[in-house]
Design a protein around this nucleic acid. Structure first.
Lengths: 137, 137
DNA sequence: TATTGTTATACTCTATAACTATA
DNA sequence: TATAGTTATAGAGTATAACAATA
């Protein structure tokens, strides 16, 4: 619906994905997988269930994300000590290298995405978005 | 990637969809279809190709959107005078009634989505989102 | 009993390619 | 030739339900 906040959010998000794939190339790891990669990097040893919770998707869905990142050689499923049901997820050396490379590319992408905004406008926008993103209560 | 504008946009958008389906019910017409409905209302007689362009999706994809809205009795495919290849899309009486009803619900939804923001903050947010949404040059 | 990871299956939304009818 | 709408098909990303192994 034109003129609504919901629609403005949607359009900005669509634009961000367009720019993402334009700048990162069509064969890049998707934004969702990049988020998963950075979450495992931030919390090495996290289980698939833990990752599912942080990504707000189901355990079943996380299996494919992890499969894909493992197939690319970026993360590993190691045995979790003390619970043989779980895997301890961690980045491989290759995964850390790739994440570092991605960080550089993402910085360029972010700069272009916000190129019409001053630095303080960008910070303000992010703060306002946080207020919208939080569920009530 | 945490801390980026792209991620903040994504999270706010996910939250807006969650709230949308929570408030409108699981059987509601989707946001995309509502946008299509309001576009046809704003531009009666528009062709499917025209609608595809405005929605920024392919002609093939628009067929299903129109099929769905027609099946619900909300829009009609009328012959386009002067070009027998095209349809002139228009809302049915039922479609206008439903759109009016949706407008009311959307107002409540929008209010809740922006409930943490003042009116001027909401306006500012929308203005900043527009700047992000516009492709460069 | 409850939890972890997995598989099978399905749904939504989108795309591309090939078709038809008209222009 | 080019355009409008359609169909068939596919891919990404998600979900639910049922299952084996383990707690």
């Amino acid at each position: 619906m034109a003129g609504t906040l919901g629609y403005a959010l949607k359009r900005a998000q669509v634009r961000s994905y367009e720019l993402f794939f334009t700048m990162m190339g069509p064969d890049t790891i998707s934004p969702a997988r990049m988020t998963a990669l950075s979450m495992v990097a931030a919390q090495p040893g996290i289980s698939q269930s833990g990752l599912a919770e942080r990504l707000a998707i189901t355990r079943a869905s996380v299996v494919k994300v992890v499969d894909n990142l493992e197939l690319l050689g970026l993360i590993e499923r190691a045995p979790m000590q003390g619970d043989r049901r779980s895997y301890a997820l961690a980045l491989t050396d290759e995964g850390y290298k790739e994440l570092a490379r991605l960080h550089g590319e993402i910085r360029c992408y972010e700069e272009k995405l916000a190129s019409r905004l001053t630095t303080s406008e960008r910070d303000l926008l992010m703060a306002l978005l946080e207020l919208v993103a939080q569920p009530e209560d």
